[in-house]
Nucleic acid binder design. Sequence first.
RNA 1: GCUGGCGUAGCUCAAUAGGUAGAGCAGCUGACUUGUAAUCAGCAGGUUGCGGGUUCGAUUCCUGUCGCCAGCUCCA
Length: 636
Amino acid sequence: MVHIELPDGSVKELDQGSTPLDVARGIGEGLARQAVAAKINGELRDLTTPLENDAKLEIVTLKSQGGLELYRHSAAHLMAHAVKSLFGKEVQVTIGPAIDNGFYYDFYSEEHAFSPEEFETIEAKMSELAKADLPIVREEVSATEAVEMFRGMGEEYKVELIEDLGAETVTLYRQGDFVDLCRGPHLPSTGFLKAFKLTSVAGAYWRGDEKNAMLQRIYATAFPDKKEMKKHLARLEEARKRDHRKLGRELDLFSFSEEAGAGLVIWHPKGALLRTIIEDFERKEHLKRGYDIVMGPQILRTDLWKTSGHYENYRDNMYFTEVDEQGYGIKPMNCLAHMLIYKSKLRSYRDLPLRYFELGTVHRHEKSGVLHGLLRVRGFTQDDAHILCRPDQIDSEVKGVMRFVQEVAGIFGFEYNMELSTRPEKSIGSDEDWERATSALKSALDDSGQPYEVNEGDGAFYGPKIDVKLKDALDREWQCATIQCDFTLPERFELNYIGQDGEKHRPVMLHRVIVGSIERFIGVLIEHYAGNFPLWLSPVQATVLNVTDNQADYARKVHDQLRAAGLRVELDLRNEKLGFKIREAQVNKIPYMLVIGDREVENGTVAPRFRKGNNLDPMTVDEFIRFVQDECRQYH
RNA sequence: GCUGGCGUAGCUCAAUAGGUAGAGCAGCUGACUUGUAAUCAGCAGGUUGCGGGUUCGAUUCCUGUCGCCAGCUCCA
């Protein structure tokens, strides 16, 4: 007999060798039907695992934590099964994990290239195998046996995996004539899989290393039922409508030109205005926080990039030019000029910290395949600052930056993820430096009250860093804010300050950006608001619409008055029906439409309509101006 | 950079078993003077991304190149 303790504290007595499925049945048929796995002493296991000893047991259903992931993992096996039965030895299987909203499986094939046209065929095969409700059976075999078996099947990648595992025994999962190396656990049978759909195929390197073979990765989505999957696909469809590349064109904000070059943004009037509003906001917020605005040149002599170490490490990503036999590098970062400003005179410990802020435009030759709308470009402007401080000031400076980041995220209503990256294997600087800097970053993160991830060994070679990531419409993460400690530049540029003791000391440098690249930030912003910018950001805040030509003069007067008051306003006097003009303003996501008909002319008012569709009571122009100013004040 | 896919009018898309392209919206012209998401009519608009090849003939097939999309790798 074994004693099994359930989550509610009750204890069941069962025959040795009973399974969690037996336990579920004992509790109720309903639970047994929904059960997909079990947590035995906290470990996720198959429902058919024999219970040999006393244990704590929790039945896992599709609704419980980990249940859905397991479901998707089994769906990945189902897809591999389908692909193998369709393509046989032409295709080798590798690995296939569950991911957010679905799963993928990586295949290797020399002969066959998967295309989306085949998705239906593969899905049909999957459905067929699911309908057959094949039991998914766990087997434990010796590693040598497994190697022999997979080698016999021509599955070289599986052989490599087993050999690298270095374990004595491995587990296999078998469903029908398909067998895969897998730790599991899995669903009891293929019949549990109800809703799945292949979504895309793309290349992926074996083991994520570009030196390895390129595999073919098929992405798919999977849900416990069709309705939920449909909902997910509809959400994706909605997200695509928020794509900043699409909205950027539709709202006439920016464009790219093949003639100008890939990854180089061309800002149209409305986009440039939006950007200007954000830049003005940045300057104001930085001045408030004790930063000095500085400006450096676009190109600096190549020698200086050699001094900084950029030439040695990053020249492949830099653009160079030569005039009069003098080489120049187009700046990929803004720090050099800031170093020169620091060095322009003798500094005292009393001067520190110095905070140099620059809306610095940089150019980096990013690999062609990584460019992505505004989110990854080759020319962009950073809200960049370099803080030079004494070692004892690191802590408070980092915390100040952290607060700044959080305040800005709050103003724009962003949720964000934070990561701390620590010392990599290849690094410079003393243990003491690293310790001090890392603990300053960590303490700022702890103080922030937000959860964060630690990426051990993921820091830059010159110092640890905090990254803040924002998500785009499709939940892809993009790094925006970052705080990095740097031990090399003060060293390489021989920066120093005179301390209280009259001796020279080396300052510490922090690189930091708040929104990061303005381009990227605007890209994320567009998707975040779906193009419906809050009033204070809207490049066009209101448009004045006359009903007929009769009100043209008054409409012009209203427009001029609003413009004089500093509102960003347009005038639409076209000879069109009101409905037509409203629609157009609506499509352009202009916050307020000011309708002017005979009534308004007579009363000296405007009739505002909000882009959400609701109308406000008619008001005078002055009232509307105050109304807009009040609304803008709410945001910052 | 890599793998796969794609590139037709300003935008969204159609067409061709190889026989030099068509629609809606936008634009222009005219009529209509209009009250909260599309008034009607007419006109105009493309060396089918660019270069080379095969062919009597290429937008269609092949090849190179540029760009875009998805993902991978990268992101100081």
